[in-house]
Amino acid sequence: MNGALLRHAWRANRSRLIVVSLALALWGALNVVIYDSLGDQVRAILESGAVPPEFARFAQFGGGDFLSLTGAVALGFIHPIAVALQLMFAVGFAASAVAGEHQRGTLEVLLARPLARRTVWATLAAAAALFVATTVAALTAGVLLGAVATGRTAELGLANLPLQWLNTSLVFWAIAAVSLAASVSFDRLAPAVGISLAIVLVAYTLEVLGSLWPEARPLQPYSLFHYLDTKANLIGLPHWGDLAKLGAVSIGAAAYALMVFPRRDLAAPA
């Protein structure tokens, strides 16, 4: 890993990181506040039987629900807004880290220095991991702030928040690792981002579809988001096997990138 390159990545992304982190923290807090304001009414409506079960299923979007604080927090973590914000770094930074620099012509300037391609990859991977960890921490901190503000910390399981942070980080680290693998495989940004986003969209669709439609449930294990189990984490019963699977995806993508990047030709930017 190269410290100068890591600092360069940090300086280039810190403003965006601050904005995304603040947005995620706000989102996390807002979820708890909304649950605090509307949770009882929503639960009463759902339990009254007035809502047909087919529609009630929509309240269990992505494995979350509105029947408990942990369910509401789970909903907040898998919600498209939270996912889109997290993807700013897990895909936006990671996919452009090599392909974007190559397209702009700056990779050439960088690699004219005595930096091995593996070192460049490792540094960019570390930067992506750091950015993802920071944004997930902001989301987690937002939830904590919301719980403190509404006086619901006892329902949340504060001691298990680090576990939730780890699980969420592992999901987005895996996505970042896949995006970085795509990034080292292409000379242009568009295919790297396109493939990364396609993988995320398919994974997200499979997970959400399975949560809303029982017949699609067998497809869920093919989604990275399936291995984010917020409710289980917050009650202190994480699925360690799921965390290991997410780690394995990251390691597999990293191994691919480390094999491909040093061996491939870097043609002159168009």
């Binding site: 012509g105 300037v109 004219a112 091995a116 930017p269």
Partner: peptide, 18 residues
């Protein structure tokens, strides 16, 4: 390659910067 790049200076054609 790394050892070489430690000892050389390179100006790419149509150089681009951040």
């Amino acid at each position: 390659s790394v050892a070489i790049r430690r000892r050389i200076g390179y100006l790419p054609g149509g150089v681009a910067f951040w």
